[in-house]
Design a binder for these strands. Structure first.
Length: 468
DNA sequence: CTATGGCACGGATT
DNA sequence: AATCCGTGCCATAG
């Protein structure tokens, strides 16, 4: 007898599965579109204003619910579905159309990346300014044109240009769109000050001892500032470790500069990771659910259906079927997203709080095992989505599965530390990488270097001697 | 002769 | 099954 039911049941479950899979591939904005569309066309689907805590089920004003937070310890992240809407839908036509074509190929990803960050904080005029500024960046990420020029060409006040410029400079990658290396370093320093302890001498050294600093004449600096030599060295080391004279390239290393076909970065992150006020506390992980409330089936419909004619019954039960399917699938989709976000933040906690060098190898199949999901499910879930880190960086979720990011960062650090007058060859870099636990072939170093946008050793010496 | 980039192969990952 | 990634080999430039 189950033979007669089985095909139907199977049809229903496969429908359910394919729908969940499809929803899983969508990012927040797309999911929200999908839901609103269904809300408009399906009369039995309702959106309730009330918000319930997914853990304790109680009605709360906003998530996460306060009583559930207190149960968490500091090590486990607080992961919750956010009822916030993913912001006003952005039209695609705001893409800067005045970007010179030659520059787009190189700089498109960077310009887009920045534009998306500032987009929510500016009005339309300012967006035009931002697009114009970004189009003028040279390949080092510096803005050689004077701000007044931009004001004139766009017929806007210098003040508004400066406002946008400051905004851009302080977004990720910090220090972009500055006039020269020196100014860029100052901005980077300023941004870093918000999240970490900066040695007090740094700023002064950049401002007053630029010449001596480029020559690494620490004794001279110490004499000029009347500061202890060890403090000067500490500050210099900090500058070398944490600041880059190539702000544009600082981004390329994290964002896969080359051969990424579907490199769509959504300016609205799908997940926001922040630490709840005090550093060291639990991580706050906000996963956007795509709806601003609770999605449910109109409870009255069941009472109404029996009294209808057969034809109407047919029609309405179709609506009911579609609505229940959507509600269930959205729930499941968001639940999966939440669980994945949780594991990611637990596993990559160091990276989230620290930097690229703290990323540890993680595979999608490992995640699949943890969650008892199929590998392809995890793949779908992390595709086309992005996360905002506590430091404000927006990164694609796929970055958490990058096998070589940490090594690339190590390469970056080694080159930043090298003696400018004797640049290290790829082979030498590979040798220095070994003691750090990274055994890579010299050929691989070359590839990483290229990804980072760093010139080969024989060219590095010259460029810097020109600068000094 | 050394340093680097292009091509392509094999293994892992998705 | 398709794709990505590290690596070896070889040609080329300095």
């Amino acid at each position: 007898m189950f033979l007669t039911h089985s095909p139907e049941l199977r049809a229903q479950t496969t429908l359910h599965l394919t729908q969940t899979m499809r929803l899983l591939e969508l990012n927040t904005a797309e999911l929200a579109d999908e839901i609103t569309h269904e809300l408009e066309t399906n009369p039995v689907l309702q959106l309730l204003d009330e918000i319930r805590c997914p853990e304790c089920g109680r009605r709360v004003r906003s998530l996460p619910c306060p009583s559930c937070i207190s149960k968490h310890t500091d090590d486990t992240p607080i992961v919750f579905l956010s009822p916030r809407l993913p912001g006003p839908a952005r039209d695609t036509d705001e893409e800067p159309d005045d970007l010179p074509a030659e520059r787009i190929a190189q700089a498109e990803s960077l310009a887009e990346h920045i534009l998306r960050q500032v987009a929510c904080a500016v009005n339309e005029t300012e967006q035009r300014i931002a697009a114009n500024i970004l189009a003028r960046l040279d390949d080092r990420g510096l803005l050689t044109d004077h701000p007044a020029e931009i004001g004139v060409s766009l017929r806007v006040s210098l003040d508004s240009v400066m406002r946008v410029l400051t905004l851009i400079q302080r977004s990720d990658p910090p220090g972009v769109a500055t006039r020269d290396f020196r100014e860029s370093l100052c901005v980077q320093l300023d941004v870093l000050r918000e999240t970490m302890n900066v040695p007090p001498l740094c700023e002064q050294m950049l401002a007053e001892c630029w010449e001596l600093l480029t020559k690494r004449n620490y004794e001279g600096i110490a004499r000029q500032l009347g500061a202890p030599l060890c403090d000067v060295k500490e500050a210099a080391q900090f500058i070398r470790r944490n600041l880059t004279p190539y702000p544009a390239r600082a981004w390329h290393d994290s964002g896969r500069g080359t051969n990424r076909l579907a490199r769509e970065v959504y300016y609205q992150p799908d997940i926001i990771i922040s630490h709840n006020q005090r550093p060291g506390g639990p991580l706050f992980v906000e996963v956007f659910s795509g709806v601003g409330g609770t999605l449910r089936l109109d409870p009255e419909i069941k009472a109404v259906i029996p009294g209808l004619s057969d034809e109407e019954k047919q029609e309405w039960s179709e609506y009911v079927g579609r609505a229940t399917l959507l509600v269930k699938c959205v729930q499941q989709r968001n639940n999966t997203m939440r669980r994945i976000a949780e594991i990611i933040t637990v596993e990559q906690r160091a990276f989230v709080l620290g930097g690229d060098c703290d990323l540890k190898p993680l595979t999608r199949s490992f995640l699949a095992q943890c969650l008892c999901l199929h590998e392809s499910t995890v793949s779908r879930a992390v595709a086309n989505k992005s996360a905002a880190l506590p430091n404000g960086r927006i990164v694609p979720l796929s970055i958490f599965f990058d096998r070589s990011l940490a090594v690339r960062d190590a390469v970056h650090v080694i080159i930043a530390h090298e003696d400018r007058h004797a640049p290290l060859s790829d082979t030498q870099i590979a040798e220095r990488l070994k003691p750090q636990g990274y055994t890579v072939a010299r050929r691989t170093v070359a590839k990483y270097r290229q990804m980072l946008g760093i010139l080969p050793a024989n060219l590095r010496g010259r460029e810097l001697s020109r600068v000094e």
